[in-house]
Design a protein around this nucleic acid. Structure first.
Length: 786
DNA sequence: CTTTTCATCTTTTTT
DNA sequence: AGATGAAAAG
């Protein structure tokens, strides 16, 4: 079956025999299989050099994916390995999906490739299998950015740190960076750890990690970091995987960051150091556009040193674009200094020259692009072959608005994602609470949604208690419901809610999980909540909820559905008809279109100011690579636009054309003077000089340095500590167990002074001087000395 | 406890 | 400009 773990226990290095799939692939060909004969000599070398390390430098449009898939097909057809012995790593789910599909096309069956997926998906798989080694249970939840942020906020608040000055966002950024570099809390360089919250950054990181373990949760960074840790600290586990993966393939190698690199190197290592790993990395240094996420181009530049004797194959024959487009892209990227240098060529025709047009503002930009696309449409071009590639997602809206009025069908790729919608996240929180009762973040999200009267005050009591006892919220609630700490009304609603969850949890596995989901949404009152809402949106939201339940049917059980949701945040839009694609340049990597529109080539937006500010020349070069990626997406038509005016943060600003326009070869591009646009095209020449300041002055200013600057002038708040946490601290020390006896004088923060009337385990019956007799928990009262 | 108002911040890119 | 989040009013 396709379960990759099935054959784990009794695993032996398989004899190179042809398994079912491979045998079929072999049987259908004589001599060179057609997936080999279709390759050019370089591609073929990359495919057929199966043994030892191979680096494929694949320029844009040179058949990179084809090489990867053919290589896998070849390995299988030769009987060198079985599908589950091949580790194939991609960066995006899209790429993984496509690779699976293409392998299936070559070989007739894409199943069995259990280890083809994103770094994150594969790490998750490993981590689930050995969760205990990472301090987790195998059903751990994967937190998305939103959950992560909320958790960080809690940690910051709990430590009495001014959350205005030291935001969760900044901390998230720091922690992410550390994780990307493979640094656990104890490994973070002291200087960096000190840069947040007056030296408490490292401490907060450690606390956050601790909280994650209590919640039985991992964030995105953890998936890789913890998987790496498991492999590092458990040689036997590592060996298992090293033996299993006879062949390793990596897509987009230029985008690997430090953890990913370490992770890969560990898995690729052979037990016998004399044996070279069968590792094939495919990448293009000119398309490295994830530096901001910790990607290190050096990984690709260093490959031959890391893996001595590596064979390097260069793919320079471009099959995608026409001559003019290729020449334009080549001339553009040639302005970068840090590159290996490749010369792409094509035998194809020159085709149309790419066009550069200036427009008055972003509105005109959208209008002009809309018109151009309509013209293409009239000439019989398919809208599926048209894409608009923007630098930042806020640019999308104007195009959408314009296209709606034109009635031009479009799809936004990587836009607001299905699983990120409010109602979907709420619904998921219900499911998560049911499946994973320790999931505090999910619980918090829905305790009071729909409104139940369980507000901040009640939640705070739960929180304090849970924190004190180091238990999940739900468990805390279960205990507190037995006492009178929480007001009677909220106590009974809370009790009812807990009962609901218990009932639902009992139904897991008893009935189809999509039916259970529907039942949960119904019984919790969540669907009614939206039905009563009379806004226009409510209907759409209910529709989305239905869609959610429907989509669950495709998964075998609740667990695998939740997993899918957290790793694959987007959902396949079942296509109805041709549509123009609108997406970011980052999202466009790996895709190609007949016609590509590239709006917004203005200084500050593209290259983005922030990239320049934070990373200086390196930032600029990355932006230029992004431009290169954009241009090389086009097969036959590329149109570039720059607007003279653009609205930024709500106010109109005059902009300068992008310096990248200077980098284009005059004899390969067509410059169109837009009617109505006041700015002459020549105006952009000034940009060079206008921006020297921001360009050259601050080369290496990572975010934490800025944070440090803040720290220098910011006096820390030692004054305003919240009373609640004081209570927590004091109580934590004063009540280690139940040393109360009837007659003791005690003090309760809410009910005031009183005397103990009875003791039952941790529950105390107390006659309060003012509030009368109450049943409370010992952790909430303080013993009075006199 | 909920609803309203006011202020702040945002807009780089993603698993 | 718009969304989100905290303080203030009901």
């Amino acid at each position: 079956m396709s379960d990759p773990f099935d054959d784990f226990p009794g695993y032996e290095p398989a004899a190179p025999r042809a398994g079912g799939i491979a045998a079929r692939a072999l049987a259908q060909v004589h001599g060179a299989p057609d997936f080999l004969s279709a390759l050019n000599p370089e591609q073929r070398a990359a495919v057929e050099t199966t043994e030892g390390p191979v680096l494929v430098l694949a320029g844009a449009g040179t058949g990179k994916t084809r090489v990867l898939t053919a290589r896998i097909a070849h390995i299988l057809a030769q009987g060198l390995a079985r599908p589950h012995q091949i580790l194939a790593v991609t960066f995006t789910n899209k790429a993984a999906r496509e690779m699976k599909a293409r392998i299936a096309a070559l070989i007739g069956d894409g199943e069995g490739m259990g280890w083809l997926g994103t770094f994150h998906a594969i790490s998750t798989k490993i981590l689930r299998r050995h969760a205990e080694l990472a301090g987790l249970k195998s059903n751990f939840t994967i937190l998305d950015t939103d959950d992560q942020m909320r958790l960080l906020k809690q940690v910051i608040k709990a430590e009495n740190i001014d959350e205005k000055r030291w935001t969760a966002r900044t901390l998230a950024y720091l922690i992410d960076n550390w994780k990307n570099r493979g640094l656990a809390p104890k490994n973070v360089p002291a200087g960096e750890a000190a840069a947040f919250a007056n030296g408490r950054g490292g401490e907060l990181y450690a606390l956050y990690q601790e909280r994650l373990k209590i919640l039985n949760a991992a964030d995105f960074g953890d998936l890789l970091l913890e998987a790496l840790r498991v492999l590092r600290e458990n040689p036997d586990v590592l060996r298992e995987y090293q033996q299993r993966f006879k062949y390793i393939l990596v897509d987009e190698y230029q985008d690997t960051n430090a953890v990913q690199y370490l992770w890969l190197r560990l898995l690729a290592q052979r037990t016998d150091p004399a044996i070279k790993p069968n590792l094939c990395c495919v990448g293009d240094d000119d398309q490295s556009i994830y530096g901001w996420r910790g990607a290190d181009v050096d990984n690709i530049l260093r490959f031959e040193k890391d893996f001595p004797g590596a064979k390097v194959v260069r793919l320079e024959r471009n099959y995608r674009s026409t001559g003019h487009i290729l020449a334009t892209a080549a001339h553009l990227i040639a302005h970068n200094r840090d590159r290996l240098g490749k010369t792409l060529f094509t035998d194809g025709e020159d085709g149309e020259k790419p066009e550069v047009s200036g427009v008055w503002d972003s509105e005109e930009e959208a209008r002009v692009v809309g018109e151009e696309i309509e013209q293409l449409q009239h000439k019989g071009h398919s809208l599926d072959e048209v894409a608009i590639l923007v630098r930042a997602s806020f640019q999308m809206r104007e195009f959408e608005e314009r296209f709606i009025t034109l009635g031009l069908p479009y799809k936004v790729i990587g836009g607001p994602r299905f699983y990120e919608r409010l109602e979907i996240r709420d619904a998921l929180a219900y499911l998560r609470c049911t499946a994973q009762p320790a999931d505090d973040l999910a619980f918090e999200r829905i305790v009071n949604t729909p409104k139940r009267g369980l507000g901040d005050a009640s939640l705070q009591i739960l929180h304090d208690f849970a924190r004190l006892q180091h238990i999940p919220l739900m468990q805390a609630a279960r205990i507190l419901v037995e006492t009178e700490e929480v007001k009677p009304k909220q106590r009974s609603t809370l009790r009812a809610l807990l009962k609901d969850f218990e009932r639902w949890a009992g139904e897991i596995g008893q009935k189809p999980h999509h039916e259970l989901a529907e039942q949960i949404l119904e019984e919790s009152g969540y669907t009614d909540f939206w039905k009563q809402e009379k806004s226009v949106e409510a209907e759409g939201r209910l529709e989305n909820l239905k869609e959610l339940v429907r989509s669950m049917e495709e998964f075998p059980d609740l667990g695998s559905f939740l997993e899918h949701v957290s790793l694959v945040m987007d959902v396949d839009n079942a296509d109805g008809g041709e549509r123009v694609s609108i997406m970011t340049l980052h999202g466009a990597k790996g895709l190609e279109f007949e016609s590509v529109f590239l709006p917004g080539w203005e200084e500050g937006l593209f290259p983005h100011q922030r990239s320049l500010d934070e990373n200086g020349r390196a930032g600029l070069e990355e932006e230029r690579r992004l431009a290169y990626v954009g241009v090389t997406r086009a097969r036959r038509r590329a149109k570039i636009y720059f607007a003279t005016n653009r609205r930024i943060h709500g106010l109109w600003q005059t902009t300068t054309p992008s310096r990248f326009l200077d980098d284009l070869p005059a004899d390969h591009v067509l410059v169109t003077e837009s009617r109505g646009s006041g700015s002459g095209y020549g105006a952009y020449a000034q940009s060079r000089f206008a921006n020297i300041d921001s360009f050259g002055s601050r080369y290496d200013t990572p975010g934490w340095k800025r944070a440090q600057a803040h720290g220098a002038k910011g006096a820390q708040d030692s004054g305003g500590r919240g009373p609640l946490t004081i209570e927590g601290e004091v109580l934590g020390k004063t009540s280690p167990g139940g040393s109360f006896a009837p007659g003791d004088r005690v003090f309760h923060l809410k009910f005031g002074p009183g005397s103990v009337a009875g003791v039952d385990g941790s529950k105390l019956t107390i006659d309060f001087d003012k509030a009368g007799r109450k049943l409370v928990l010992d952790s909430f009262v303080e013993q009075k000395s006199s």
